[in-house]
Design a protein around this nucleic acid. Sequence first.
DNA 1: CATGAAACTGAGAGTAGCTCTCAAAAACTA
DNA 2: TAGTTTTTGAGAGCTACTCTCAGTTTCATG
Lengths: 216, 216
Amino acid sequence: MNPMTAARTTSPADRPQLGLRERKKIKTREAIRTATYALIKEQGYDATTIDQIAERAEVSPSTVFRYFPTKEDIVLTDEWDPILLEELRARPVDEPWPDTVRYVMLKAARMGVKDDLEVARLRTHLLVQVPAVRSRMMESMSVTGRMFCGAIAERTGRDPDSLEVRVYAMSLVGGLLEASMYWAERGHRDDFEDLLDRTLNVLEHGLPRQNPGEKP
Amino acid sequence: MNPMTAARTTSPADRPQLGLRERKKIKTREAIRTATYALIKEQGYDATTIDQIAERAEVSPSTVFRYFPTKEDIVLTDEWDPILLEELRARPVDEPWPDTVRYVMLKAARMGVKDDLEVARLRTHLLVQVPAVRSRMMESMSVTGRMFCGAIAERTGRDPDSLEVRVYAMSLVGGLLEASMYWAERGHRDDFEDLLDRTLNVLEHGLPRQNPGEKP
DNA sequence: CATGAAACTGAGAGTAGCTCTCAAAAACTA
DNA sequence: TAGTTTTTGAGAGCTACTCTCAGTTTCATG
């Protein structure tokens, strides 16, 4: 009942309940993504063309576009928005909102990173290196932001379209993105969960009085 | 000494101190932008091609690209980053940081909007309507964010590359962007300075307890 | 002025992302 | 097995964008 989540860690011969059509679709989708990741690792992002991807994935170029609207989407498509939402809804309603955010964010990070560290690293690396990917990522994060708006509204009885809620949500996703870039820029040396924790602190309480001396 | 600011409200025959070359450059730059704005108003963004812009501006298409790296940049190029920075530096060093931000942001908004309301409206309209423009805008805002990082570091003796500073800066520009979109989405009915004020409140103190009932 | 260096421009060819159409092939349904 | 729907491949076409190169204009000399 959740094709998005099923679509990721893929052992080729499970999901017997789906029709052959669906299974093939999932398979080509993965083939395209795998081919893309491989080619990017070999040649870099810009040097990798859709034709090459299509060739290695053994589909036609038009098929690639039928599965992913843009080249950036092949790398980015985040299937965790619905998961995040689900997680968000599962929290007790009387939990203070900042706590909820912290919990859900941490959980999401844990999933996204632990699930496939290689991919997470490549993604964040591209996030820093390739402007087009960064832009696309910001786009998708603003979508996530809108989702947060809905969640906040649901829980606190606010108007999801109010300026305050939208700004708050935007600063959340923006901070998360910045943390990701920071992580990648420094060669993924830091513990991502720690970065996330510090990020949420800033968003909750503003800048701390002074930096606790930290030069690597 | 500030070509960026000089480049905007343009009466054709001032700036006598610049060489002929510079004056011509500024003139074609403006011609391209004017042509673009006009065409977009007539036909919309996507339907307007570079060739059309070049034709109306009476330059060759290649020249258009020599002046603006992408089509979106013709509409967006914000010449106020340096102004903002200057304004920021002009504030007394002992002023509390949030106050400084508020002052500078308001000033910037006042400039950007009052200076040419027509253009400000068109820009924010495109911001909402055209994904490519939105992306490009986000890109440029992240540049502005880096600038803020520098300013914060300068004033507070912090490391401009620290996670905390970067997250803080990002949430600032993100909030500003969201406010702009909110403004445009609601048909520019609201007072932009008021929106900005509310935005900064959220960023400073988080979400207010409850929405003071506001349905227009 | 005149002459040479430097910058600016136009023309055109080329790449690649992306869209669209149409006919063939595959998968589901009865 | 026959018929309907979905998926696919092939290819044409559009446009943003890059690059090169020759011709012109502006600027700084002697």
